[in-house]
């Protein structure tokens, strides 16, 4: 037994590394495969007119209305889900009594587990139908906000609860109020995590189709002011709809829309990293 132990440990070690390698490959391979295959397919279709024409143009259809629509909806998510999610996360991390916290976390998890198509359906029934908002920017923004809220809440809560206890104690010992402590002491180290959460939320909003089918409708025109009874275009719809159309021009538009969606998501991810890198530097070596 004694003499076999090191060898056995060595074997266990290699098995562990092999499993780690497989797990890593299982994450990296699909991500790379999806990005590469979509971009390869879209590359020949990417041309300047995509940005200048709308889907209304039959001869040379573009994505202007869809891109602008996606940006408007994302902005809406930042404005609606951002503050609610961040404040909710701060409440859970810093204020919630145990019972209330558990209750809220439970519902947040349930919401995260609801399929996006169901959220779309509920938003349709409540806003489009019952409140007579019709296919509208606001219905779409609320549906996307419901979808992304749990992520923002969770990442905010985790970011705040990871701030070292010693910083809380320093703030308490100086007689700082809870609000000052949160704003001036806890927020800087929590910010990179919160921004990552917002980036995930935006990536989800950019990539979702199901909840928007019932709420945003679609429009071949560029977005116009007006939250109610005002359908709006978005990128994933173009992929979803035109991929089912027979013509080669329509297929090309679908590929281009998929490519632009992926590019937008990549832009979000790298943009988020660039913003948080500076912040992380300031709070680096926060190992107290």
């Amino acid at each position: 037994m004694e003499s076999r132990a090191p060898r056995f440990r060595h074997l266990k070690g290699s098995v562990f590394w092999i499993i780690c390698g497989i797990a890593l490959a299982a994450i990296i391979a699909p991500a790379v495969a999806v990005v590469v295959s979509v971009l390869v397919k879209a590359a020949p279709e990417l041309k300047w007119s995509l940005l200048t024409n709308t889907t209304l143009n039959v001869q040379n259809p573009g994505l202007q209305n869809a891109i602008l629509g996606t940006l408007v909806l994302s902005l809406g998510v930042v404005v609606v889900a951002g503050p609610i999610g961040i404040l909710g996360g701060i409440y859970l991390a810093e204020f919630a009594p145990r019972r209330a916290g558990g209750f809220l976390r439970f519902f947040s998890e349930v919401l995260a587990g609801v399929p996006s198509i169901v959220i779309g359906l509920v938003a349709y029934t409540a806003f489009v139908e019952a409140l007579h908002w019709g296919f509208s920017v606001l219905s779409a923004i609320i549906a996307l906000s419901l979808l992304t809220l749990p992520y923002i809440v969770k990442t905010t809560e985790v970011s705040f609860s990871q701030v070292p206890r010693s910083l809380h104690e320093a703030a308490i010992a100086l007689g700082l109020s809870k609000i000052t402590t949160i704003r001036k002491v806890l927020l800087p180290p929590a910010l990179p995590g919160i921004i990552s959460g917002m980036v995930i939320a935006l990536a989800i909003s950019t990539g979702e189709t199901a909840p928007l089918l019932y709420t945003a409708g679609f429009s071949d025109h560029n977005p116009t002011p007006g939250l109610f009874n005002n359908p709006i275009g978005y990128l994933t719809y173009v992929t979803y709809y035109y991929v089912g159309q027979p013509g080669a021009r329509d297929q090309a538009l679908a590929s281009a829309a998929a490519g632009v969606t992926i590019l937008l998501v990549l832009l979000l991810i790298f943009g988020g990293r660039a913003i948080t890198a500076r912040q992380r530097k300031m709070v680096a070596r926060l190992d107290v």
């Binding site: 703030a171 001036k184 002491v185």
Partner: peptide, 24 residues
């Protein structure tokens, strides 16, 4: 006032570390 066993400066600038509480 209280000083702890391990230094625990705030993740803010050196000046703000000193000025924050008096301002508050």
């Amino acid at each position: 006032g209280m000083l702890f066993q391990r230094p625990n400066p705030f993740p803010r600038s050196i000046a703000e570390n000193v000025g924050l509480a008096p301002r508050a």
